[in-house]
Amino acid sequence: MNRLQPTGIVAALAWFILSFLALPAFAVIPISFTDTRYLSMPEEGLSLQHWRTFLSSPQWLGSIWQSLWIAVVSTVAAVIAGTLCAVGCWRIASSLSDKVRGLMILPMAVPTIVYALGLYRLYVDLDLVGTAFGVVLAHTVTGLPYVVLTVSASLSNLDPRLEQAARGLGASLGQTLRYVIVPNIVPGVLSGAIFAFIHSWDELVVVIFIGGRALFTLPRRMWDGINDNLDPVIAVVATGMILFTLLVLTAELSLRARRTN
Protein backbone atom coordinates (compact mmCIF):
# COMPACT_ATOMS: atom_id res chain seq x y z
CA MET A 1 0.00 0.00 0.00
CA ASN A 2 1.93 3.00 -1.25
CA ARG A 3 -0.86 5.55 -0.84
CA LEU A 4 -2.08 7.84 1.88
CA GLN A 5 -5.31 6.63 3.38
CA PRO A 6 -7.28 9.66 4.47
CA THR A 7 -10.38 9.05 6.50
CA GLY A 8 -13.71 9.60 4.80
CA ILE A 9 -14.16 12.77 6.80
CA VAL A 10 -11.08 14.42 5.25
CA ALA A 11 -12.20 13.56 1.72
CA ALA A 12 -15.74 14.80 2.40
CA LEU A 13 -14.34 18.00 3.89
CA ALA A 14 -12.13 18.51 0.83
CA TRP A 15 -15.09 18.18 -1.53
CA PHE A 16 -17.07 20.59 0.62
CA ILE A 17 -14.25 23.15 0.41
CA LEU A 18 -13.97 22.60 -3.34
CA SER A 19 -17.65 23.40 -3.76
CA PHE A 20 -17.19 26.51 -1.62
CA LEU A 21 -14.47 27.48 -4.11
CA ALA A 22 -16.14 26.60 -7.36
CA LEU A 23 -19.84 27.27 -6.89
CA PRO A 24 -20.45 30.81 -5.52
CA ALA A 25 -19.50 32.63 -8.73
CA PHE A 26 -22.16 30.70 -10.61
CA ALA A 27 -24.87 32.28 -8.47
CA VAL A 28 -24.76 35.24 -10.85
CA ILE A 29 -26.26 33.09 -13.62
CA PRO A 30 -29.75 32.63 -12.09
CA ILE A 31 -29.59 36.19 -10.74
CA SER A 32 -29.11 37.50 -14.27
CA PHE A 33 -32.53 36.00 -15.14
CA THR A 34 -34.30 37.57 -12.19
CA ASP A 35 -37.76 39.03 -12.72
CA THR A 36 -37.19 41.69 -10.05
CA ARG A 37 -35.54 45.07 -10.41
CA TYR A 38 -32.98 44.44 -7.70
CA LEU A 39 -30.21 41.92 -7.13
CA SER A 40 -31.98 38.68 -6.16
CA MET A 41 -32.80 35.18 -7.31
CA PRO A 42 -35.82 34.93 -9.67
CA GLU A 43 -39.00 35.13 -7.56
CA GLU A 44 -42.05 34.41 -9.74
CA GLY A 45 -40.37 33.29 -12.93
CA LEU A 46 -37.46 33.82 -15.26
CA SER A 47 -37.10 37.05 -17.17
CA LEU A 48 -34.86 38.21 -19.97
CA GLN A 49 -35.38 41.90 -19.18
CA HIS A 50 -31.85 42.49 -17.90
CA TRP A 51 -30.30 40.63 -20.82
CA ARG A 52 -32.32 42.88 -23.16
CA THR A 53 -31.12 45.98 -21.30
CA PHE A 54 -27.56 44.77 -21.59
CA LEU A 55 -27.74 43.92 -25.28
CA SER A 56 -29.32 47.27 -26.14
CA SER A 57 -26.85 49.34 -24.14
CA PRO A 58 -24.23 51.04 -26.30
CA GLN A 59 -22.11 51.67 -23.18
CA TRP A 60 -21.84 48.01 -22.17
CA LEU A 61 -21.33 46.80 -25.75
CA GLY A 62 -18.75 49.52 -26.35
CA SER A 63 -16.87 48.42 -23.25
CA ILE A 64 -16.79 44.82 -24.49
CA TRP A 65 -15.15 45.91 -27.74
CA GLN A 66 -12.80 48.23 -25.90
CA SER A 67 -11.70 45.41 -23.55
CA LEU A 68 -11.49 42.86 -26.33
CA TRP A 69 -9.19 44.77 -28.63
CA ILE A 70 -7.02 46.07 -25.81
CA ALA A 71 -6.61 42.45 -24.65
CA VAL A 72 -5.83 41.18 -28.16
CA VAL A 73 -3.22 43.83 -28.94
CA SER A 74 -1.48 43.62 -25.57
CA THR A 75 -1.49 39.80 -25.73
CA VAL A 76 0.18 39.79 -29.15
CA ALA A 77 2.82 42.24 -27.93
CA ALA A 78 3.41 40.34 -24.67
CA VAL A 79 3.66 36.99 -26.49
CA ILE A 80 6.24 38.24 -28.98
CA ALA A 81 8.44 40.05 -26.47
CA GLY A 82 7.96 37.40 -23.74
CA THR A 83 8.72 34.43 -26.01
CA LEU A 84 11.87 36.06 -27.40
CA CYS A 85 12.99 36.90 -23.87
CA ALA A 86 12.38 33.36 -22.59
CA VAL A 87 14.20 31.80 -25.55
CA GLY A 88 17.14 34.17 -25.12
CA CYS A 89 17.43 33.45 -21.40
CA TRP A 90 17.13 29.72 -22.02
CA ARG A 91 19.95 29.72 -24.56
CA ILE A 92 22.25 32.08 -22.64
CA ALA A 93 21.66 30.11 -19.41
CA SER A 94 24.01 32.20 -17.28
CA SER A 95 23.41 33.52 -13.78
CA LEU A 96 22.72 36.93 -15.34
CA SER A 97 19.98 35.59 -17.60
CA ASP A 98 18.48 33.77 -14.61
CA LYS A 99 18.31 37.14 -12.85
CA VAL A 100 16.57 38.64 -15.88
CA ARG A 101 13.97 35.90 -15.74
CA GLY A 102 13.54 36.57 -12.02
CA LEU A 103 12.98 40.29 -12.70
CA MET A 104 10.40 39.40 -15.34
CA ILE A 105 8.08 37.79 -12.78
CA LEU A 106 8.30 40.69 -10.33
CA PRO A 107 5.07 42.31 -11.66
CA MET A 108 3.23 39.26 -10.29
CA ALA A 109 4.43 39.97 -6.75
CA VAL A 110 4.43 43.76 -6.38
CA PRO A 111 0.94 44.98 -5.39
CA THR A 112 -0.82 46.41 -8.44
CA ILE A 113 -1.89 49.53 -6.57
CA VAL A 114 1.77 50.58 -6.21
CA TYR A 115 2.36 50.15 -9.92
CA ALA A 116 -0.89 51.92 -10.83
CA LEU A 117 0.12 54.95 -8.78
CA GLY A 118 3.55 55.22 -10.41
CA LEU A 119 2.17 54.61 -13.89
CA TYR A 120 -0.42 57.34 -13.43
CA ARG A 121 2.34 59.84 -12.62
CA LEU A 122 4.37 58.73 -15.64
CA TYR A 123 1.31 58.94 -17.90
CA VAL A 124 0.48 62.44 -16.71
CA ASP A 125 3.94 63.51 -17.93
CA LEU A 126 3.60 61.57 -21.20
CA ASP A 127 0.00 62.70 -21.76
CA LEU A 128 -1.19 59.07 -21.94
CA VAL A 129 -3.90 59.20 -19.26
CA GLY A 130 -7.25 58.06 -20.64
CA THR A 131 -5.77 56.60 -23.84
CA ALA A 132 -6.26 53.02 -25.01
CA PHE A 133 -2.61 52.99 -26.11
CA GLY A 134 -1.55 53.67 -22.53
CA VAL A 135 -3.64 50.74 -21.27
CA VAL A 136 -2.22 48.46 -23.97
CA LEU A 137 1.33 49.32 -22.89
CA ALA A 138 0.52 48.65 -19.23
CA HIS A 139 -1.22 45.35 -19.95
CA THR A 140 1.64 44.24 -22.20
CA VAL A 141 4.22 44.76 -19.46
CA THR A 142 2.12 43.13 -16.75
CA GLY A 143 1.24 40.26 -19.13
CA LEU A 144 4.91 39.46 -19.83
CA PRO A 145 5.43 37.30 -16.68
CA TYR A 146 2.75 34.81 -17.75
CA VAL A 147 4.35 34.34 -21.16
CA VAL A 148 7.91 34.13 -19.82
CA LEU A 149 6.84 31.51 -17.24
CA THR A 150 4.88 29.22 -19.58
CA VAL A 151 7.40 29.46 -22.42
CA SER A 152 10.32 28.82 -20.03
CA ALA A 153 8.48 25.74 -18.74
CA SER A 154 8.12 24.48 -22.32
CA LEU A 155 11.77 25.20 -23.11
CA SER A 156 13.01 23.27 -20.10
CA ASN A 157 11.89 20.10 -21.90
CA LEU A 158 13.69 21.04 -25.10
CA ASP A 159 17.18 19.71 -25.81
CA PRO A 160 19.56 22.69 -26.29
CA ARG A 161 21.58 20.61 -28.75
CA LEU A 162 18.74 20.99 -31.27
CA GLU A 163 19.49 24.70 -31.41
CA GLN A 164 23.24 24.06 -31.61
CA ALA A 165 22.73 21.62 -34.47
CA ALA A 166 20.61 24.09 -36.41
CA ARG A 167 23.12 26.92 -35.93
CA GLY A 168 26.01 24.58 -36.70
CA LEU A 169 24.39 23.63 -40.00
CA GLY A 170 24.33 27.31 -40.94
CA ALA A 171 20.81 28.40 -39.96
CA SER A 172 20.50 32.06 -38.98
CA LEU A 173 19.04 33.03 -35.61
CA GLY A 174 15.75 33.91 -37.29
CA GLN A 175 15.62 30.58 -39.13
CA THR A 176 16.48 28.65 -35.97
CA LEU A 177 13.68 30.39 -34.09
CA ARG A 178 11.21 29.99 -36.93
CA TYR A 179 11.86 26.36 -37.88
CA VAL A 180 13.42 24.72 -34.82
CA ILE A 181 12.59 26.39 -31.51
CA VAL A 182 9.10 27.89 -31.89
CA PRO A 183 7.47 24.76 -33.41
CA ASN A 184 8.66 22.82 -30.36
CA ILE A 185 7.19 25.22 -27.79
CA VAL A 186 3.83 26.07 -29.38
CA PRO A 187 1.73 24.74 -26.46
CA GLY A 188 3.74 26.87 -23.99
CA VAL A 189 3.40 29.97 -26.17
CA LEU A 190 -0.35 29.45 -26.54
CA SER A 191 -0.80 28.89 -22.79
CA GLY A 192 1.11 32.10 -22.17
CA ALA A 193 -1.10 33.89 -24.69
CA ILE A 194 -4.24 32.65 -22.94
CA PHE A 195 -3.02 33.76 -19.52
CA ALA A 196 -1.87 37.15 -20.84
CA PHE A 197 -5.24 37.59 -22.53
CA ILE A 198 -7.27 36.77 -19.41
CA HIS A 199 -4.96 39.03 -17.41
CA SER A 200 -5.72 42.02 -19.63
CA TRP A 201 -9.40 41.16 -20.02
CA ASP A 202 -9.89 41.08 -16.21
CA GLU A 203 -7.48 43.84 -15.21
CA LEU A 204 -9.12 46.57 -13.15
CA VAL A 205 -6.80 48.41 -10.76
CA VAL A 206 -4.47 49.93 -13.38
CA VAL A 207 -7.41 51.00 -15.56
CA ILE A 208 -9.12 52.71 -12.62
CA PHE A 209 -6.05 54.92 -12.24
CA ILE A 210 -4.99 55.58 -15.84
CA GLY A 211 -8.41 55.37 -17.52
CA GLY A 212 -9.14 59.05 -16.99
CA ARG A 213 -12.70 60.22 -17.49
CA ALA A 214 -13.50 58.49 -20.73
CA LEU A 215 -11.85 55.08 -20.99
CA PHE A 216 -14.14 52.35 -19.69
CA THR A 217 -13.05 48.75 -20.20
CA LEU A 218 -15.57 46.09 -19.18
CA PRO A 219 -14.16 45.55 -15.66
CA ARG A 220 -14.09 49.29 -15.02
CA ARG A 221 -17.69 49.76 -16.13
CA MET A 222 -18.65 46.85 -13.88
CA TRP A 223 -16.73 48.37 -10.97
CA ASP A 224 -18.51 51.70 -11.45
CA GLY A 225 -21.84 49.89 -11.75
CA ILE A 226 -21.30 47.99 -8.49
CA ASN A 227 -20.28 51.16 -6.65
CA ASP A 228 -23.15 53.28 -8.04
CA ASN A 229 -26.16 50.99 -7.93
CA LEU A 230 -26.41 47.22 -7.76
CA ASP A 231 -28.30 46.82 -11.03
CA PRO A 232 -29.04 43.18 -12.05
CA VAL A 233 -27.53 44.06 -15.45
CA ILE A 234 -24.16 43.59 -13.73
CA ALA A 235 -25.15 39.95 -13.10
CA VAL A 236 -25.66 39.60 -16.86
CA VAL A 237 -22.18 40.97 -17.51
CA ALA A 238 -20.70 38.73 -14.81
CA THR A 239 -22.43 35.71 -16.40
CA GLY A 240 -20.93 36.61 -19.76
CA MET A 241 -17.48 36.98 -18.24
CA ILE A 242 -17.71 33.61 -16.46
CA LEU A 243 -18.79 31.79 -19.60
CA PHE A 244 -16.02 33.47 -21.59
CA THR A 245 -13.42 32.51 -18.98
CA LEU A 246 -14.66 28.90 -18.94
CA LEU A 247 -14.27 28.74 -22.70
CA VAL A 248 -10.71 30.04 -22.55
CA LEU A 249 -9.80 27.84 -19.58
CA THR A 250 -11.03 24.72 -21.39
CA ALA A 251 -8.71 25.60 -24.25
CA GLU A 252 -5.83 25.98 -21.80
CA LEU A 253 -6.51 22.66 -20.08
CA SER A 254 -6.55 20.80 -23.38
CA LEU A 255 -3.25 22.49 -24.28
CA ARG A 256 -1.81 21.45 -20.95
CA ALA A 257 -2.88 17.86 -21.58
CA ARG A 258 -1.10 18.00 -24.94
CA ARG A 259 2.01 19.45 -23.37
CA THR A 260 2.33 16.76 -20.73
CA ASN A 261 1.67 13.90 -23.18
Binding site: V100, L117, G118, L137, L177
Partner: peptide, 23 residues
Protein backbone atom coordinates in the same frame (compact mmCIF):
# COMPACT_ATOMS: atom_id res chain seq x y z
CA UNK B 1 20.42 36.12 -27.87
CA UNK B 2 20.84 39.11 -25.59
CA UNK B 3 19.43 41.15 -28.45
CA UNK B 4 16.16 39.20 -28.40
CA UNK B 5 15.95 39.48 -24.62
CA UNK B 6 16.24 43.24 -24.94
CA UNK B 7 12.70 44.29 -26.06
CA UNK B 8 11.04 42.71 -23.01
CA UNK B 9 13.76 43.98 -20.71
CA UNK B 10 13.48 47.54 -22.03
CA UNK B 11 9.71 47.51 -21.69
CA UNK B 12 10.02 46.26 -18.13
CA UNK B 13 12.61 48.91 -17.29
CA UNK B 14 10.80 51.89 -18.83
CA UNK B 15 7.19 50.95 -18.14
CA UNK B 16 7.54 49.05 -14.89
CA UNK B 17 10.64 50.04 -12.94
CA UNK B 18 10.48 53.73 -13.84
CA UNK B 19 6.93 54.01 -12.40
CA UNK B 20 7.96 52.13 -9.24
CA UNK B 21 10.98 54.41 -8.90
CA UNK B 22 8.67 57.38 -9.32
CA UNK B 23 6.57 56.16 -6.37
Amino acid sequence: YWLIVLPALLMLALLYFVPLGNV
